[in-house]
């Protein structure tokens, strides 16, 4: 049987998360098909068809799929799923919203946010904010799975030439109506895919001080992140939050500035290759996971770092 991957996109561009999800799918046995549900998505479907190793792209193009409304997309998945052994989506806010709805309608217990594929029915997933790793085996006929992006290296985006098949739409169920979306725009790399991330915490004291780390970020071509405390205090917006309940990142270099290192923050960054911590409290738990720790006042250290980088 085949594996269905639910594509993530904004109707124009295929999101990077899809490439990680296909990587997870490629560790299962079966052909990979991609479902692109959206509105005005022929470009996205074509991009999906260029992914090497993809057998087919299903394109459900209709207005009711245009705004990621779970109530509209779930019935489409439910209609297609019986033809597949697995349905996979990224464990992003999109996947987390839509997949459980479809799973319940299929009477399937979803397996959330896997970090490893052990076999066609057995997966590893973090529990308790990553303080434990559970190996779990699904006994349901269809495996409904969400995938942690950072645990699967993205597949290539060119080289394939899958066929694209139109799928008829399931209609607007008329439950939720889209009003608006406030999207943070930035010229910096995206937080979840950046090679370097520099995050600020409560130690930054104010959103007005974030330019200190933004300047360093620009020199390193890094993304900027934040702790929950910094987001709650309004220094930066919610989409910056790294952690158990925010975004999970695993860059080559993660620099934590004025962040204590609470377990919930570590859950979102401790798989980074190299971790740097800048904190004036030498007892801060962040130093226990840092490869390089600098015990210093961030208001001295960050400008010095900025200067040192030239």
């Amino acid at each position: 049987m085949s594996i269905l991957v639910l594509a993530e996109h904004d109707n124009e561009t295929l999101a990077s998360a899809t490439f990680n999800t296909v990587a997870a799918a490629s560790q299962l046995s079966g052909d990979i098909e991609i479902l692109v549900a959206g509105s005005g998505t022929s470009g996205v479907a074509e991009a999906a068809a260029r992914i090497p190793g993809v057998a087919k792209v299903l394109n459900a193009d209709s207005a009711e799929y245009g705004n990621d409304i779970a109530e509209n997309i779930a019935p489409l998945i439910v209609q297609l799923a019986p033809n597949y052994s697995h349905v996979l989506a990224a464990a992003t806010t999109f996947g987390k919203n839509v997949m459980p709805r479809a799973s319940a309608l299929l009477d399937v217990q979803q397996v959330s946010e896997i970090t490893s594929v052990e076999s066609d029915d057995t997966f590893i997933r973090p529990i308790y904010a990553g303080n434990a790793m559970a190996t779990v085996q699904s006994t349901d006929a269809i495996k409904m799975v969400t995938v942690r992006m950072t645990s699967f290296e993205a597949v290539a985006d060119e080289g394939g030439s899958a066929s694209i098949e139109a799928v008829s739409a399931t209609g607007d169920v008329g439950l939720s109506a889209f009003v608006s979306q406030e999207v943070s725009v930035s010229d910096r790399p995206e937080l979840t895919t950046a090679r370097i991330v520099i995050s600020g915490g409560r130690g930054m004291k104010s959103g007005d001080n974030f330019p200190l780390i933004e300047s360093v970020a620009d020199k390193l071509n890094a993304a900027v992140g934040a702790s929950r405390a910094a987001v709650d205090a309004g220094y930066v917006s919610n989409d910056f939050q790294v952690g158990q309940t925010g975004k999970v990142v695993a860059p080559d270099l993660y620099i934590a500035v004025g962040i204590s290192g609470a377990i919930q923050h570590l859950a979102g960054m401790k798989d980074s290759k190299v971790i740097v911590a800048i904190n004036n409290d030498e007892e801060a738990p962040i130093f226990q996971v840092a490869d390089y720790g600098l015990v210093a006042d961030l208001f001295d250290a960050v400008p010095a770092l900025d200067a040192e980088l030239g």
């Binding site: 529990i127 490869d291 720790g293």
Partner: peptide, 22 residues
């Protein structure tokens, strides 16, 4: 519907170093 086969500690990070300056 899901069998928990085992629960394990996550891989631990190796201890790092404290650097004196920027």
């Amino acid at each position: 519907r899901v069998n928990v086969i085992s629960v394990n500690e996550p891989p631990a990070r190796e201890a790092g170093v404290i650097v004196p300056d920027v």
